[in-house]
């Protein structure tokens, strides 16, 4: 069964528009004009049970709006949403028992209480009986190594410990789908890694479906097998991470260090990104020139060191964000040949 099914989802916001100047303000009061902004426009996708999906896009692309519609906070204007077979618009409360949400910037824990007390509160919200609750807290604490600080007030915890508790708190009712909105925002690399491990572990042990939004490429790369990119309220890419990284990618970065400064080849398909003394960084478009041919252009005798790498995922994503529509996205990442 699919955990999430979305068809032609649409949400339009109206924004008040006002001309500049005092006259504009007065006019806006007398005859308010509104401008429509299509936050989400015709989005369709499905997520399998147990899948880990990265749902990304630039700021204002419609990610949060989509999550809000999936969790029943916002009602769509058009299209259909089904999460675990439930329509969030009609049965928000029923759905709430089965999903979990973590909004990175918003804290849901009571900071003066211990994680233990907090978990008890969430247990009450999800109608979990006391003994069952004890059992679950014990299990989660063990699995996610919370023992050290489970009885320390949340305000005395480090940011990383706090976020870990935030996430564990949203697992108390064993949700089948977990929505994570920017879970690692503002965390240091070590803590980020811990959080990623926690998410991965959760997915593995409980088969929880993960719906993740993040601006952190590391989160996306390390956690998700599938990626959906939205821009201007539309899906511009829906593919596996594998494809995106290796198949679609037709650009290589070649870094060379020569013994002495030499002229670089002037061939179509090779762009000099940077040259400083005997160091050079080239971008090779393998669509236009084969990598072997490109390398042959470089004087091997004179070479001290060479490094060939893929364009970082971050750059690929940036490229996609910049593209205006699906066609351009395809062009930007078109397969070799």
């Amino acid at each position: 069964m699919q955990a999430i099914r979305v068809e032609a989802l649409t949400k339009t916001f109206r924004v008040r528009r006002k001309e500049k100047g005092m006259r504009g303000s007065i006019k806006a009061i007398l005859r308010p004009q509104t401008e429509e902004i299509r936050a989400v426009h015709g989005v369709s996708f499905g997520v399998e049970e147990g899948e880990m999906l990265a749902f990304i896009g630039p700021n204002g692309a419609g990610k949060s709006t989509t999550i809000k519609m999936l969790t029943g906070i916002l009602y769509p204007d058009g299209g259909r949403v089904e999460v675990l077979g439930i329509d969030p618009t009609k049965k928000r409360r029923q759905l709430a028992y089965q999903i979990g949400t973590v909004f990175g910037q918003k804290e849901q824990l009571w900071t003066h209480l211990t994680p233990y007390d907090n978990f008890r509160f969430f247990g009450a919200i999800y109608d979990i009986p006391d003994e069952e609750m004890e059992h679950r807290i014990g299990e989660l604490a063990e699995r996610f190594e919370l023992h050290e600080f489970i009885n320390t007030p949340v305000r005395n915890l480090s940011l990383g410990q706090r976020i870990r508790c935030e996430i564990v708190a949203s697992l108390i009712h064993r949700p089948k789908v977990l929505f994570l909105d920017e879970p690692t925002i503002g965390l240091d690399p070590v803590v980020k890694e811990q959080i990623r491990n926690l998410i991965r572990q959760m997915n593995r042990e409980y088969n929880t479906t993960i719906f993740l939004t993040s601006h952190d490429v590391g989160d996306i790369e390390k956690l998700c097998k599938r990626i959906i990119i939205v821009n201007d309220g539309q899906i511009v890419l829906d593919d596996s991470m594998e494809h995106l990284k290796y198949h679609y990618l037709h650009k290589k970065i070649v870094e060379v260090k020569m013994q002495e400064e030499t002229a670089l080849p002037q061939v179509a398909g090779i762009t000099v990104l940077k040259q400083k003394g005997s160091h050079a960084r080239l971008e090779v478009d393998t669509g236009a020139v084969e990598i072997g041919d490109a390398l042959r252009q470089i004087n091997v005798e004179n070479m001290e060191d060479i490094n060939i790498s893929n364009v970082p995922l971050e750059n690929i994503i940036m490229e996609i964000y910049r593209a205006k529509d699906r066609q351009q996205v395809k062009a930007a990442i078109a397969p070799v040949g």
Binding site: T71, I73, R93, A96, F103, K106, D127
Partner: peptide, 11 residues
């Protein structure tokens, strides 16, 4: 927009 967190609770 702080009502959101209450809307995702089943209460």
């Amino acid at each position: 927009g702080k009502l959101d967190s209450y809307l995702v609770q089943p209460k």
